[in-house]
């Protein structure tokens, strides 16, 4: 029954095919590499997932030239922050070391890496603070969220990048809003606030209206108003 249903839906078939392709392909990896690859794939955005799947199709296509295959593998690694081992297309261990390499090749990626580094730093600092404030040991926290104590230690030392689900679980375990651990949840909110500030048809509050209607109080510029030249 279910099979027939699925097979009649071309989208579902395509999806099954790509999932099968990924599983097939990851079979060649060592267990930790495979776990890491799949973990990274689950965490990334739908857009990136789509790119990875289409690149995997390139990789497994027998007509693909070796150079193309290599390039596709490297692009996948870039997209997922993994580090391909040049010879056999399998994945190396050093996640951190692959970043500068990938970033050098790809400017938008460089930006992402920079951003992630800053986020990681404040994440580690906040986690440390919260654990101190709530007097929770690494051991205790690891038990609460179901990960190993060394994993917590690595997060505190910024040796591994927290995954979204981990942040959500940590927040729950520490009984705080996820934004306390991951402030960029706020950055998105801030940008929304900025966009709404410019919205036409905004109705002023009484306080705004009275301040802007009060033209007896004209606070004028205290800097020299002067348009800057365009170019020498």
């Amino acid at each position: 029954m279910t099979d027939t249903f699925l097979l009649n839906d071309p989208q579902a078939v395509a999806r099954l095919d790509s999932v099968a392709c990924i599983f097939e392909w990851t079979r060649s990896m060592s267990a930790p590499d495979r776990k890491r690859f799949l973990g990274a794939l689950i965490e990334c955005s739908d857009d990136v997932q789509q790119v990875v799947v289409s690149l995997l199709n390139v990789v497994k296509d027998p007509r693909t030239m070796p150079a193309e295959r290599k390039r596709a593998l490297m692009t996948i690694a870039d997209a997922l922050f993994l580090n391909p081992c040049e010879e056999d297309g399998r994945y190396g261990q050093d996640l951190a070391a692959s970043e500068p390499y990938a970033a050098a090749k790809n400017a938008p990626l460089a930006r992402e890496v920079r951003k992630m580094n800053a986020q990681e730093e404040s994440f580690a600092a906040r986690l440390k603070e919260l654990m101190t404030a709530k007097q929770i040991s690494q051991q205790e926290l690891s038990e609460r969220i179901g990960c190993s104590q060394p994993a917590i230690s690595q997060m505190l030392n910024r040796m591994c990048r927290p995954q979204k689900r981990t942040i959500l679980r940590l927040a729950e375990a520490l009984n705080v809003h996820p934004r306390e651990l991951w402030p960029d949840i706020d950055v998105a909110d801030m940008l929304d606030a900025v966009a709404s500030f410019q919205q036409d048809d905004y109705t002023m509050t009484a306080a705004e209206a009275s301040a802007l209607a009060d033209t007896a109080k004209k606070n004028r510029p205290k800097v020299r108003a002067k348009s800057l030249p365009t170019r020498p």
């Binding site: 500030f197 410019q198 919205q199 036409d200 048809d201 905004y202 109705t203 002023m204 509050t205 009484a206 705004e208 209206a209 209607a213």
Partner: peptide, 9 residues
């Protein structure tokens, strides 16, 4: 930029 704001009712 500019924006058009409404005086309150």
């Amino acid at each position: 930029g500019t924006s058009r704001w409404n005086w309150p009712p």
